[in-house]
Design a binder for these strands. Structure first.
Lengths: 280, 280
DNA sequence: CACTATTTGTCCGTATGTATG
DNA sequence: TCATACATACGGACAAATAGT
């Protein structure tokens, strides 16, 4: 009973939903007509209708015959916004909104890449744990963590399910002094898709972080995958250094010194899109 | 007239290509067998073969009958890595590797979101420009910029095609003092897909940045969309403040690129020996 | 040297989504 | 809205090549 799904329609549905939920297509505004959408996205009108049907079923749009299709004012669930410069995930702030599920835990031989990133010695094994973070009961991040075995033994599996890893490491007397982060994008494989309640091939935000102790050896390697509709990174910067150097430093999140501070926790990135008219 | 494209096969192809180009699947390693892939990704073997055919055609994999499918040592084009804390896109570093195409330019009434973000006054219009950045002749970013009209008039359309916007603003005597950035993900619409040489619905890295002058008014609103295979954000952090505060500050960009990191590969529920074809 | 297990390569008929009118 | 034509996707089955026992 492997019924095949309407793939093109689903893709278009996802695209339009993304536009609506991201706030690009604002409530009460009219969507392009069905024939226009069909031409724009290179599909038939039947496919467009299928996508719109789905959106209508979810209450995201309202169709008025003879008039057009309109974005309804349905609000999306507030996504989570993280301060990019804050390496610690502070449970205090997250509070009871978030939870953690420990999917797997064990000690494995490291891959070559891990040896390089963590500067492991020959034969040294790593502790590998896979966790899923939830917000309001909904999964939003998939975390694969690798820690050198000599460090990993300082806490238990149960600790990991309740306490942020970096906090555990600190309690063990380890000093996290330097960190290195890279943000990119990736596609969801079967495991991740299942864990994050997505379909295979969905787009994800990815972050790779390596934390080092003063000696320069790595103490944590984290590969995180986020649902972009539920998580994004944010950073406020101020100009520093009168030496003409174009340096910018992050500012505190908690203290919005300026009443006009531009941060709003709930704001999501807008995806701009040239509505009309392309130039070549 | 080929009316329908192989969507599932294409998706699987993109997924596997992502794994290979990102370095997760390392050269010379063996991919899971076709039946295994079919089960893992919930498609038929025929579909798996189509995806592998495409990869083989591009030389990313080598198939050895009876033996398996192997990742060939073909190196991906080095993607661009940006220092996240550096608001300025320094042409100096980018040098001649990069180029800019100005797609559109003009003055338009602002959207409600823009009014809010830039703190525009009633009736104030904005200058809107759409640019595409190229690296080695290949497009990697799609930039939609909005600038208040009172500021935009200080430079010409030609300037914009050759000089970074923030530099132009500085020359006009404007002080960029604070900035606010959000990174997320988005899906490619028709225009962006065409501009970035992608297909509609492809995943993109998105960044929204608003730059403020000391008075608190916005002087630039940038919506950037990046091809994740050609661009990513990087940041090195050091611990600051012995006051126990968990502050981290960015340091100078030292090393070029961390190859993108590990995602998990589905393990077979069978009795698997240390076959270890996992991620890195 | 065979025997076995697993892999890729090739074929089939069937079912269903998509485009067209 | 409906019906038709076509391409894709599916689940088989079987052959050939490879590697390990």
């Amino acid at each position: 009973m492997s019924s095949v799904e309407p793939l093109k329609a689903r893709r278009l549905y996802l695209l339009l939903r993304d536009r609506i939920l991201s706030g690009e297509a604002r409530p009460q505004t009219r969507l392009p007509s069905e024939p226009t959408l069909a031409v724009d996205y290179g599909v038939s009108r039947v496919t467009v209708r299928r996508a719109l049907d789905e959106l209508e079923r979810e209450g995201l749009i309202e169709r008025k015959p003879g008039s057009g299709t309109f974005v309804s004012g349905k609000t999306a669930v507030a996504p989570m916004v993280a301060d990019f410069s804050n390496v610690f995930t502070h449970l205090v702030e997250m509070g009871r909104r978030t939870g953690v599920r420990l999917l797997s835990f064990g000690y494995v031989p490291p891959t070559p890449a891990l040896v390089e990133d963590l500067k492991l010695e020959a034969g040294e094994r790593v502790q590998r744990s896979v966790r899923v973070r939830l917000i309001d009961g909904q999964p939003f991040s998939y975390l694969v963590t690798h820690v050198p075995e000599r460090i990993g033994i300082s806490y238990s599996e149960a600790d990991l399910a309740s306490t942020p890893l970096l906090e555990l490491l600190e309690r063990s007397g380890l000093a996290a002094e330097r960190a290195s982060q890279t943000i990119g994008a990736a596609l969801a494989g079967p495991e991740v898709a299942a864990a994050l309640d997505l379909e295979i091939g969905a787009a994800l935000l990815s972050m790779t972080r390596v934390v080092y102790e003063p000696s320069g050896r790595g103490i944590e390697h984290l590969q995180a995958l986020y649902r972009p509709d539920r998580y994004s990174f944010h950073m406020d910067l101020v100009r520093t250094g009168a030496d003409g150097a174009r340096r910018w430093a992050p500012v505190e999140l908690s203290r919005p010194a300026d009443p006009q501070a531009p941060i709003l926790q709930k704001r999501r990135p807008k995806r701009a899109q040239p509505q009309r008219r392309t130039a070549r």
